[in-house]
Write a protein that binds this DNA or RNA. Structure first.
Lengths: 227, 227
DNA sequence: CGCGGATTTGACATAGTTCAATTCGAGTGG
DNA sequence: CCACTCGAATTGAACTATGTCAAATCCGCG
């Protein structure tokens, strides 16, 4: 995990949490505050459960999974974070991370020092509200997971695909599925085999078309009807 | 739902969110800020999904359930809030409530105006951190629910009973179960019948003793071993 | 081309649901 | 104080979605 220079000339600065954060800072101030960027290789951990939470992160490219390992050794995946998502929001509420974050592929992140974030929350209403709203979205996501886990296998997969579709910037039915079937199962709380069967079914019903790591949603309405 | 006077002479003031909030306010200021108390009868709603979130609430006695109704009309219970718990924390992150809150029995609450809460978050680090930490606990609780829903019926019930045991102020194995079997099922995502069967099993194994709305945990270790 | 992990498919096992019937228990009224 | 009522809780029996285990196939990569 190698760190590089911060956001001073980042084209996304104005639309970014970091933008609000570093507004008015000189490069030197940023540097000393600890704003920076990193790249992680596939499989590398961004942080582990119990680590002192000193940064939160913005995904620039690639993807993470956040997960915990239960008492009986099973990996429970709590979320996937793709480009533009925030990882490690825990850090705002807790001194330590409550989950592990691991790169699913080569992944780029911006790191925002949590001390600066907390300080800025006291300074500007706009920034405080930006953080609170991010927390609100995280609550919504968790409530969504809770709802999804009360549905049938078909519905879980359908709901997941739709959420990916919504989260994707590119229009059209193309979505990125950087996670393995195993990980998807661990996220949806389904056996790998069940996930696989649902995908097969959706493809034979011409709802979906699979192409390697990507996949095309041919019949969005059918998915909505399911979920 | 009748409202009465606020916290000026509340014995709990110093250990309460409200205490930090109203610190330094005159009774008149409190009044005009909207700090107050209410009582709700069994079955009354404290708020409904979509309501403008103008207060958050502290439970003083009694209990709530927070729930949503899914597309196919099923009630999904997202939490039970007993004495000393915060209800409506949504309000900090969202302009509208994202769930319904309904009294399970006659219930007393303090109402804290969210505008005052948000304002105070800018003023004192201590108060901001108190709120953030409450949000953190809510995240933990949701993560706990997600974990629990991946367990067997026995484990879900055991984990639930243990969490009630921890949350109860009174020592000894007595816990309050103000919710019906139906509601418990809707919370744990189990059929009422399944909940009932687990309780029966736990009683015949002398882990539990039931007494109306209360219940005594005889063998805490057995519960831990299960969960 | 061939290897090894990931995915898919098949056959079978089972926890939990569903539906129906019974029992319990807190109020209520005689 | 007891009988009655009605909803809540429990019990029973059959059913089903999904898990489990094992075998077959696919696919990316050296």
């Amino acid at each position: 995990m190698s760190a590089t220079a911060p956001c001073i000339d980042c084209p996304r600065q104005s639309r970014c949490l970091g933008g609000l954060l570093v507004e008015g800072m000189t490069p030197a101030q940023m540097q000393s505050a600890g704003v920076s960027r990193s790249v992680l290789d596939k499989g590398e951990h961004l942080y582990r459960i119990g680590d002192r939470a000193e940064h939160l992160y913005l995904v620039r490219g690639g993807a993470f999974k956040t997960y915990v390992v239960s008492a009986d050794g099973d990996e429970e995946i709590r979320g996937f974070q793709l480009a533009e998502d925030i990882v490690g929001l825990d850090a705002v509420c807790n001194p330590e991370f409550r989950a592990n974050a691991r790169a699913l592929s080569r992944t780029w992140v911006c790191r925002l020092p949590i001390a600066a974030v907390r300080a800025r929350m006291l300074e500007t209403v706009q920034f405080r509200d930006r953080i609170l709203s991010a927390l609100g979205h995280e609550f919504d996501r968790l409530h969504g997971m809770l709802h999804r886990e009360r549905c049938s296998a078909d519905q879980r997969v359908a709901a997941f695909l739709l959420s990916q579709l919504d989260a994707t910037i590119t229009p059209g039915g193309e979505i990125e599925l950087p996670m393995s079937r195993v990980d998807l199962g661990r996220y949806l709380d389904l056996a790998t085999e069940t996930v696989s069967r649902v995908f097969t079914r959706l493809q034979s019903r011409k709802v979906l078309r699979k192409q390697g790591t990507r996949c095309e949603v041919v019949d969005r309405d059918a998915l909505c009807a399911l979920a």
